[in-house]
Simulated scan of single mutants.
Amino acid sequence: MARSPKPFQNESVSVAFVAEKLQSVVGIEISALNDADPELRLVTESNQHRPGLALAGFLDLFTHHRIQVLGNTECRYLEHLSAEGREAAFSKLLVFNIPCFFLTNGNLLDAPLLDRATEAGVPIYATGLPTMEFQARLGDFLSDQFAIQQTVHGALVDVYGIGLLLTGSPGIGKSEIALDLVERGHRLVADDVVIATAKGDSVLMGAGTDIAQHFMEIRGLGLIDVRAMFGIRAIRFQKRIEVVVHLSPWDKEVEYTRLGMVDSFHDILGVQLPLVKLPITPGKNVTVLCEVIAMNHLLGHYGYNAAEVFAERLTNKIRSKKSGAGPDRGIDYFEHDYE
Rank of each mutant, 00 (worst) to 15 (best):
E253F: 01
V292D: 08
I218S: 01
I241F: 10
L223H: 14
H297K: 09
E242N: 08
Q213A: 15
D225Q: 13
V243D: 05
V244C: 01
A234N: 00
M205G: 06
Y256I: 00
S248C: 07
L278G: 03
F237N: 11
D263S: 08
E255Q: 03
H266V: 05
Q213S: 14
H246A: 10
D251I: 01
D263C: 06
Y302Q: 14
E255V: 01
I211S: 06
V244S: 00
I211T: 10
Q238N: 12
R227W: 14
D263Y: 04
I241A: 09
P274A: 07
P274I: 04
P282A: 12
A207N: 07
N296P: 05
V288F: 15
K277R: 11
G270W: 11
A234K: 01
A207F: 06
L273K: 06
W250R: 07
V244H: 00
I224L: 11
R236M: 10
W250S: 05
K239I: 09
K284D: 05
H214S: 12
Q213R: 15
D267F: 14
I241E: 05
I218F: 00
I235H: 09
G260F: 09
M261G: 09
E253S: 02
L299A: 15
M205E: 06
D263I: 04
V271W: 13
G300Q: 13
G270F: 12
V271L: 10
G208V: 01
G220R: 03
E217C: 10
